[in-house]
Design a protein around this nucleic acid. Structure first.
Length: 281
DNA sequence: TGCATTTGACCACT
DNA sequence: AGTGGTCAAATGCA
């Protein structure tokens, strides 16, 4: 899974940006690549440790690794932005000022094209686009120009209830055929989750429970979305998808939630590491 | 019947 | 004018 942020994306995709005092992108790219590998490894290891007393510890270790790399990226990003600041900031402000005053003839409609410099934009590439532990509802699908597969649009299930503005788009990459290589999806998150789950707990801290529940209910009122190999979004309740994936991973394995933010920060003490090693990995 | 998804249309942005 | 994001009616499913 490759993590990016909006500025990183926009800068890497355009050539008109002024040169940087120092370019942290290679380092960020490598860290992101490490995150991708760890996430994929976690998707393999954790299901195998189900009902094992070590599973929680292993999950926390994985999360600690991901937290470390996320912080590293954040730090690099901070320096990156400071270096790039100057006329770029002025341009951003101008754009922002223009973008704010969106007037529409239909007051109920809020059709506003996203800007590439959205500060809350996070992009990642992952074979498991639905493993973010959040609850999403699909609200659209569109074929994007020069892409083989359609892009699916999701918004937070709690958008209406709690006015959560988080959205995401999922698109299968053109070169991921699914025959020799795992399907790779580009997932782009927009906005921050401001919602809490039904228990009144921040959903980001209780994703494991909520997601497990939604995947077991045949038709729960809230569901976590995933994307099938054809790029058409379905829900975790979709048994057809389960059938198609059954030869690779078991149902429970496939839908085990892996939210990067699902576990709180966890500082591994040495005894815990020793215990894990003693148990044998 | 209620909820989630699908899909064509609308509209902002480039 | 083309593209992409969102809306909302239609549709499907349990």
């Amino acid at each position: 899974m490759k993590l990016h942020n909006s500025r990183y994306l926009s800068q890497s995709s355009t050539s008109d940006h002024p040169s940087f005092v120092s370019d942290h992108r290679p380092a960020m790219k490598e860290i992101a690549r490490g995150q991708s590998l760890v996430t994929q490894l976690r998707a393999i290891v954790l299901p195998a440790l189900q009902a094992d007393c070590r599973s929680e510890l292993v999950a926390q270790m994985f999360q600690s690794i991901l937290d470390c790399s996320s912080k590293a990226i954040t730090e690099l990003q901070l320096h990156h932005e400071l270096d790039a600041r100057g006329d770029g900031a002025l341009v951003d402000d101008k754009k922002r000022g223009r973008g704010e005053e969106v007037t529409t003839t239909h007051p109920h409609r809020q059709l506003k094209r996203r800007k590439s410099d959205d500060p809350d934009l996070v992009s990642l590439e992952t074979p498991v686009p639905h493993y973010d532990g959040r609850q999403w509802r699909k609200y659209g699908q569109k074929h994007i120009n020069k892409t083989k597969y359609p892009r699916s649009y999701y918004r937070c299930t709690y958008r209406q209830d709690q006015d959560c503005k988080a959205t995401k788009t999922v698109q299968q990459q053109d070169d991921s055929t699914g025959t020799d290589h795992p399907l790779i999806y580009t997932v782009i998150y927009h906005g921050q989750h401001t919602c809490k789950d039904n228990n009144g707990v921040d959903s980001g801290t209780n994703d494991y429970e909520t997601n497990t529940q939604s995947s077991s209910d045949s038709r729960s009122s809230k569901s976590t979305t995933c994307t099938d190999p054809d790029g058409y979004g379905t829900t975790l309740d979709d048994n057809k998808l389960l059938d198609r994936s059954a030869d690779l991973i078991t149902e429970k394995d496939l839908y085990e939630p892996f939210d990067l933010t699902a576990f709180g920060n966890f500082d591994l003490d040495s005894w815990e590491l020793d215990a894990l090693l003693r148990f044998g990995a």
